[in-house]
């Protein structure tokens, strides 16, 4: 499975989920698009326009992207601005799992220093490689087999429904 996108934004270390979507908005809607409309409102007001310019955008960062609060709204805020993947050198677990659950690809590679805004990237999940089509360069995607599997399926939902079905069938 392959995916292409253009780097719309590049950030440094420790971008926390409060920066991605401030807390005061979290309870004000149950609609995912609402959070996208307020993405990075305080931290980087240009985020939305930059990402929405492309049909398939990619966000790049260095270490620990998505740290802090467990709010899944941070994933909606990124994803529903036409973002297909976040490429970073590391992710904290909660954010990583929230990404997998929502079909936003969390792509971990050793080094993102040579990737810049405007670069066209190609993600090859089967080959586990990230290619920079603009500047050249290829990076191995660091992920467990199960994470790759979830990235291809867009989450766990099918599996969970199956588990529930089995449980209900065996219950009296």
């Amino acid at each position: 499975m392959e995916l292409r996108g253009k780097v719309a934004k590049k950030y440094g270390d420790d971008i926390n989920t409060d920066y991605i979507i401030p807390a005061y908005l979290l309870q004000e809607s149950w609609d995912k698009q609402f959070f996208a409309d307020h993405a990075f409102e305080y931290y980087d007001p240009s985020f939305k326009t930059a990402c929405r310019t492309n049909k398939e955008s990619i966000v790049v960062a260095t270490n620990n992207f998505g740290c802090g609060s467990s709010r899944e709204q941070a994933v909606y805020a990124v994803k529903y601005n036409n973002v297909v993947a976040v490429v970073a050198q590391s992710f904290p677990d909660i954010f990583y799992r929230n990404c997998l659950n929502n079909g936003l690809l969390p792509i971990q590679v050793e080094d993102t220093s040579k990737i810049g805004e405007g670069d066209e990237l190609l993600i090859d999940l089967d080959g586990r490689s990230l290619k920079n089509l603009t500047k050249g360069g290829q990076y191995a995607i660091i992920a467990t087999d199960s994470a790759i599997d979830q990235m291809k399926k867009g989450g766990f939902m099918g599996f969970v429904r199956e588990r529930l079905r089995t449980r209900l069938a065996s219950a009296t």
Partner: peptide, 24 residues
Amino acid sequence: AFGIGTTEAENLLATGELYSFTAP
């Protein structure tokens, strides 16, 4: 004990299970 997101929470309500958990 650790935090989870909305989707894992709804899954847990249904089955009481967490999926594909890697022991840290």
